[in-house]
Design a binder for these strands. Structure first.
Lengths: 199, 199
DNA sequence: GTCTATAGCTAGATAGAC
DNA sequence: GTCTATCTAGCTATAGAC
């Protein structure tokens, strides 16, 4: 979990930069994210960033790699719960509301996704991030189908549909702040209900 | 449908600019959309755009107003079909695949949505666009619940969940081109199945 | 490894002729 | 109404001192 020495080490420069990028992305989004704003969240200068990375997008790509790993870990964490509980917990995490501390970052990821067609550097890390989430959801659903919690639904189709709904809610619910919070919750909750066996 | 004279008139400057914006947005997205690229799709110069609008975002806002009206019209068009057919047709329209002629524009709208928190000029037109789609879906579902085609589902919750899924599919399916086309179709199709009465 | 200073570029918007 | 030319601002990335 630490470096080769096994000792607890202070965060290295790259980890500090990743943290700065996360904070700056959440505050400003991607288009308005400048290296000056990243440096403002970092305790060093703008030029210092370029000692560790060759371009701004490489820094963001590194941040996204970390985010994919963290996302996979969090959705896989609660192995001891039953699959309905795990799926509902995943939905609580993935459907964010305006004001949630993750809201800014979700909007920024949405913006990054929309830039993927034009940005080769970001494409692969974003595929990892979305793929990790998709896999985690499919695993939960597959387990629930296997043990009889859920009906015989297609785990991949169900996971894709559910992740799409969570991602898409970020646009009109979070970014536009349209008054649909209660509708969305009833929507995903009813969807999970509809997956249950015997229902 | 035309101007006060009742005659068929040539498209005015604003309509031509809106068309140019649609084409340029689909090709380049929003961040990379410059006034030079809009002018390239227009048959006039860059400065000419500023005779009709005060800023780039005002041009885009006018384009979005038109898109909201067009979206509402297309989803409301087939009044004579039964509600299951209408809902499936709406899904076919809203879930686009990479390569679809609407793909570029869907990604651009996703990008615009992600900028809404930072851009007051775009926020209202985007709310109109998403609101028009949401209303059209809810109307279809409400009608289907009323005539017994669908179960007693909540039309607003169902519409919000379905629009979220369609919007969100644009990210990983269209922008990232992840191989989830078949999964997504099975996903939304099974969801519509689950709304049917007697199912 | 980190800094200050700046090169080099590109964008949105305007001025003024026609 | 439409043009060409240009102003001004803000960005990424680098040079060179320390």
């Amino acid at each position: 979990m630490d470096d080769e020495t096994g000792d607890s080490v202070p965060p290295d420069a790259k980890a500090e930069i990743a943290e700065a990028i996360g904070a700056a992305l959440a505050k400003h989004g991607y288009e308005r994210l400048t290296t000056a704003k990243i440096a403002a969240e970092y305790d060093k200068s703008e030029a210092g960033l370029y000692y560790h990375y060759d371009s701004k997008d490489e820094m963001i790509a590194a941040f996204l790699d970390g985010a994919a790993a963290a996302q996979a870990a969090e959705l896989t964490d609660d192995d001891r719960e039953d699959s309905e509980t795990r799926l509902r917990a995943a939905c609580e995490r993935l459907f964010v509301a305006p004001g949630d501390e993750r809201a800014g970052l979700h909007v920024a990821v949405m913006e990054l996704l929309s830039h993927a067609p034009y940005n080769e550097t970001l494409r692969d890390p974003l595929r990892e991030l979305e793929g990790a989430t998709l896999d985690a959801l499919a695993d939960i659903i597959r387990e629930g189908v296997g043990d009889g919690t859920f009906r015989e639904v297609d785990p991949d189709a169900t996971a894709a549909f559910l992740l799409a709904a969570a991602d898409g809610s970020t646009g009109f619910h979070v970014a536009l702040e349209m008054d649909v919070g209660a509708d969305l919750r009833r929507g995903w909750s009813a969807y999970v209900d509809s997956l249950l066996a015997d229902g």
